[in-house]
Amino acid sequence: MSTQSHHGLQTMFRHKKKKTSDEMSLQITSMADIFTIILVFLLKTTASGINTVAPNGASLPVMAHGNEIVQDTLKMEINRDFVTVDDKTVLNLNQFEIPITELQAGGMSQSVYQAFMAKRSSKQEGAANSTLLVLADENTPYSTLKSVLASAANTGFVDLQLVVVEDN
């Protein structure tokens, strides 16, 4: 390298301290870049991925394969102790059983019906949306499922997406 170009580099990176041979420095700039990329990727995956529909306690049935979850829509979960609509508990169950006082004509559950009505009237779930993501525990009896589905159907949520765990 010529003296002139060496002088130019010195001007560009002026006043840089020269390291002595016993001074070790880890180059962490590139590591920070890699970490930033990994972090952004993980944040994107977490925000838009499967975690948004993960059940809060229900043990989902394990099946060979199904379709991909294509849209983020209203979520309902049934487990041993409660029914939730959009992660909000709307009805307490007794070992999967709906209390008799809850049941209305047509087998509907009053509380679940009201929760769906509230969602239907809100801006979030407009009249056009009829899709419901169902996360039910694999041991849920059909009687409970039927009551909840009747409540959903009477508020216009008739297109069900039954969520299962893929058997790998």
């Binding site: 972090l39 379709n67 959903a152 297109d159 997406q161 969520v163 765990v165 893929e166």
Partner: peptide, 21 residues
Amino acid sequence: LIAYMLVSMSYIQLSIFEAGV
């Protein structure tokens, strides 16, 4: 942060079956 997110990530694969009422 990366360690936390990796640990808290869900590794189960969910899918759906479509049905009507």
